[in-house]
Nucleic acid binder design. Structure first.
Lengths: 245, 245
DNA sequence: CAGTGGTCTAGACCACCAC
DNA sequence: TGGTGGTCTAGACCACTGG
């Protein structure tokens, strides 16, 4: 049995997108088993009443996601291994929520401060000019998990503490109409200072996982600089990445 | 002055690829400055004697790389910020070489061992079945930087110690015709055990950066499982990531 | 050899944005 | 309202893979 596929031409959803969604659902659901051939593009196009380029566009989007592999002279196959998350720019909040960890946030600092040299360089503003500073403690199951320190340019966002505790910073930025484009990250480790240890209920010198991240919108503006520390017994960075062909 | 663009129809290189390379070079070189408009697709196609879909394909590949941004009703712009490396599946060897660090490698273990439960699960083989084990110490400027422990299925690769010291494992796999597809990574931190401390010239309990990675080829086979420790004063993970639109 | 994906064309209509 | 990218069509030829 080939597979149930159909498109709705009266829908405002692009045809290639309708098709790619159905294919992705079929893969997720198991109707399309790993390693199985997808059938050639011409026949697929004819069956759906679409042109070949449209079908190709649908297939290409899934190839880009790593779900399909194309081989010349062979066909298009469903990838065997379990591809799930191609490393998104996700907030820790979303990650925890998805893992069912019931995240809690305490906003410890929410004020306007002069930019340090490091912050100024990251955000592309003048040193000592005013920027927002947000420090948050993230807890899971009542235990401290991470200390998040963020700096943002002024006038970009309404930074309400209550809202920051109810949702993630990234979600707030997206809601405010900011189009996130890229981020530069650095992940490292170091021993906890006395201050860091106290915040995270660790002892001085305990290994901590650290991340620094500068996020840019699609105009190239830096919209956020974060300097975070994580308890490595409670958190690690897990992600999947695809090889660029 | 608009920009010098031309394609060679007698070349076996695809036209869209020729164009995207020229555009990328122009961005890199500074002929196309950040924020500048690219000119509309129709006119660009006419100027080059190409069809619009071909020009779109060239532009799209650079949008996927994060170098360009398209806006409906506005045009295609060069991204402001510095986008460089979209997180490749690069080997530590290549990273160091690119940074001019003259990496050196000592192969400490190169043998066949029975798979532990963890290794067996990662590689998808039976527990206690034979697998390759490669342990390497990576040095930069004569100082230990990382201890790399890898497990590979048998019969995949000819694992010559001399070659392993002269180049990276990933480069050897690519040379052997293995098409890398995706990898699952986990980055964390912990205190060094006595053994780890000795290997890396640290003291027991010193913070270490850790990474575990399973790499898959395009048929879904696991081709490598690595369990690595890094001295955080000498190495951190730096990368750029793009937001999927 | 037959079949597949890879590339390319010359049009077309629509949705969105700035003015 | 004019210009932009977003989508779509119905073909075509080529390069590579497998038997």
């Amino acid at each position: 049995m080939p597979l149930e596929l159909s498109v709705d031409r009266s829908s405002p959803v692009p045809l290639y997108f309708q098709l790619s969604q159905q294919l992705e659902a079929a893969i997720e659901h198991g109707s399309l088993t790993p390693g199985s051939l997808l059938g050639n593009e011409i026949e697929l196009a004819a069956r759906l009443g679409l042109s070949r380029p449209t079908v190709r566009q649908a297939i290409q989007s899934l190839v880009d996601k790593g779900l399909l592999v194309r081989r010349r002279g062979v066909g298009t196959q469903v990838v065997h291994s379990q591809v799930k998350r191609p490393l998104e720019l996700s907030s820790l909040f979303d990650d925890l929520e998805a893992a069912g960890q019931r995240p809690a946030t305490k906003v410890l600092v929410n004020s306007i401060v002069p930019a340090s040299a490091e912050v100024a360089a990251a955000l592309g503003v003048a040193e000592d000019s005013d920027v927002h500073r947000i420090d948050r403690l993230r807890l899971a199951h009542g235990e401290p998990m991470a200390y998040l320190s963020n700096h943002l340019p002024l006038g970009l966002l309404n930074l309400d503490s209550a809202q920051l505790e109810a949702t993630g910073l990234y979600r707030m930025m997206r809601t405010a109409g900011i189009t996130l484009h890229s981020a530069r990250q650095s992940i490292g480790a170091r021993g906890a200072t006395a201050e860091e240890a106290e915040r995270l209920a660790e002892i001085e010198g305990a290994p901590l996982l650290t991340m620094q991240r500068t996020t840019f919108d699609d105009t190239g503006r830096a919209v956020e600089f974060g300097s975070h520390t994580y308890r490595p017994t409670r958190y690690s960075f897990e992600f999947q990445l695809l090889v660029r062909p």
